[in-house]
């Protein structure tokens, strides 16, 4: 269903106005973080109106400078980046072949459909159900407070997404191209690597980005398995809650640092978000 072109001008104005207001409501908190990050501690909770810099208060970059200068902040960005990149790569490395298998071969004992759904079902597992055993396992393996532990676990939790989304991408590719490759003497692996994979690359890249965002935002496992060394951005943020309480002027800076990458990803991967977040059930 496409929007009508011949709409009444009054209706057009009213609808547009409502849409603008709605978008503003959804944008406001992000704007508010930005505004708070520019305030002096004394102004944090006392600015009037909608906290517009220069109009309602005298903005300062002190919070940003202070925060970016801290070792912890840089360490948190570094850790979060490493963990999110490697968890995404690991999930893609495991998930893409499985997705290909589910799209291009027929399994007999358990049907392709049930296999796919089994992968999916991992996603609805409440993470808290595995938090305690993972804690004990990682303690046993001496992996508490390491990047590796968080990479392994995050990869596990985003793997189902990869399988399901990429499977759908492969299904949408014409199989004939791969068959042509067989004619040229390629084997299964060749057809996968040289034909299917390049064609699916844009979707795979978008999936990777979405997985990156998920891992970047993950908090429960990070706070459980890390204590001192492997501080990720969400833990760094919760760390502002030390014995001295939350310093919201710094918090706002950290919130901005935390939100900018995933929010950019949301814009970049727009086309794939619907499919990604509905596990391929709805196509965007």
């Amino acid at each position: 269903m496409k929007p009508k072109q011949n709409q009444h001008p009054l209706k057009y104005s009213i609808y547009s106005l409502i849409a603008v207001v709605a978008a503003m409501i959804f944008f406001f908190p992000i704007y508010w973080a930005f505004s708070t990050s520019l305030r002096n501690p004394l102004d944090t909770f006392t600015v009037s109106g909608f906290g517009i810099p220069f109009l309602n208060f005298e903005p300062t970059l002190t919070n940003w400078v202070d925060q970016l200068a801290t070792e912890e902040a840089r360490k948190a960005v570094y850790n979060s980046t490493v963990i999110a990149v490697f968890a995404s790569i690991l999930a893609l490395a495991l998930g893409i072949p499985a997705a290909y298998a589910l799209a291009r071969f027929r399994f007999k004992t358990i049907s392709n459909k049930d296999l796919t759904i089994w992968f999916l079902s991992q996603r609805v597992l409440p993470p808290v159900a595995t938090v305690v055993p993972f804690y004990l396992i990682m303690q046993f393996l001496n992996l508490l407070d390491t990047q590796l532990a968080l990479i392994l676990i995050n990869a596990t939790f985003v793997l189902p997404f990869v399988v399901v989304i990429v499977r759908q991408t492969f299904l949408d590719l014409p199989i004939e191209l791969e068959e042509a490759a067989f004619m040229d003497g390629a084997r299964n692996y060749g057809a996968f690597l040289r034909v299917a994979l390049p064609l699916a690359a844009p979707a795979i890249a978008a999936t990777g980005l979405i997985m990156f965002a998920f891992t970047w935002n993950e908090f429960l496992f990070a706070i459980t398995l890390s204590s001192k060394e492997v501080i990720t951005i969400p833990i760094h943020m919760a760390g502002a809650v030390d014995t001295r309480g939350v310093q919201f002027w710094f918090m706002a800076v950290r919130a901005m640092i935390a939100m900018i990458p995933p929010v950019l990803i949301a814009l970049l991967a727009q086309r794939y978000i619907v499919q990604g977040l509905t596990l391929g059930a709805v196509k965007g």
């Binding site: 501690p41 944090t44 809650v241 309480g245 939350v246 310093q247 919201f248």
Partner: peptide, 12 residues
């Protein structure tokens, strides 16, 4: 309120 908010109130 946690510590920070209460203290800031007094400090203001």
């Amino acid at each position: 309120w946690s510590l920070g908010e209460a203290w800031d109130y007094f400090l203001r």
